[in-house]
Design a protein around this nucleic acid. Structure first.
Lengths: 152, 152
DNA sequence: ATTTTTGTGGGGAATTGTGGGGAATTATGT
DNA sequence: ACATAATTCCCCACAATTCCCCACAAAAAT
């Protein structure tokens, strides 16, 4: 399985094109992936890029579990697929971010790719910086969630 | 089988015409589909577009479950089938949404196509946005339905 | 230093999306 | 039945976007 690691800054031009970092492209090619899927992150103000095979597997699994005739099931499926787009890659290895998504997560010129293991996140540089500027509680959170200690 | 993916915003003009997104048109042509069927969604305030073959499969499925000789079954089948229309496509690749359906799901100018795997949904943009605005329960629902955990 | 790969930019053709003018058809009221 | 209105359909024009191509700067590798 793909393992995307690292932060890469890039610039989006006026046409909404961004160079897809070579590090990530190599991984994708090695895995034989042809396409990427994008969607807005459920919680954060950023885009999430999925290799297509990962996405399709998800979709198949959901379809097999969720009934088309059950309104709640169908709504879950809808919310999952609504907002997804296939991401075209041009001859230069650039991706074109649909305008709809640019506006949704407020992408201007400076952007940042963040490797998140099996997916890649795309942030506006400003917001990404803001996130990392105050990592104050990180240690605390990690301790709470993973520490598992019971010292007083 | 056709796989419609993606979200496309479009505008409906005063005549009720909407450009049918090129992405979807290509898929339909490749599959050799000739016609589209429309229906209001059973639960939601949106229209569902079926390639004719998908529609037919759907009917077959219903027929296999619903008895032709049971009056309630037959009524359900009747109501499902009665609400459907064939969707004409004009020379420019636009579809004309019948007035009846426009009003039924409250379509004004701004609309959104949502690829839902083998069907396409057509929403008013406002309502589509509303869908995505509260993704709070989505994660929860997915976890419940697909997580396969063994929570109590 | 020179070559190769990676990243940026832009021009312009082709496709996609939007709008509107009416002719043909269908509905509606009297 | 007829006149009128509304709708559907078919055609054209144009704006916007996307796609495809090429040129070149910057960084990395040889």
């Amino acid at each position: 399985m793909a393992r995307f690691i690292g932060n890469i800054d890039a610039k989006m031009d006026e046409k909404g094109r961004v160079f897809f970092p070579a590090v990530f492209r190599r991984i994708i090619q090695k895995e034989g992936e042809e396409a990427l899927m994008v969607r807005k992150d459920v919680h954060q103000n950023c885009l999430v890029l999925y290799p297509k095979s990962v996405w399709n597997a998800q979709l198949d699994e959901m379809r097999s579990v969720l009934s088309r005739w059950n309104s709640k099931d169908q709504m879950v499926f809808r919310q999952f697929v609504a907002g997804v787009d296939e991401l075209p890659v041009d001859g230069n290895g650039r991706i074109l971010i649909p305008k709809r998504l640019q506006q949704l997560v407020n992408l201007q010129s400076a952007v940042r790719f963040i490797g998140m293991d099996d997916t890649i996140e795309l942030w506006s540089k400003e917001e990404a910086d803001a996130l990392l500027e105050n990592p104050a509680d990180l240690g605390e959170n990690i301790e709470r969630l993973l520490g598992g200690g019971n010292a007083l």
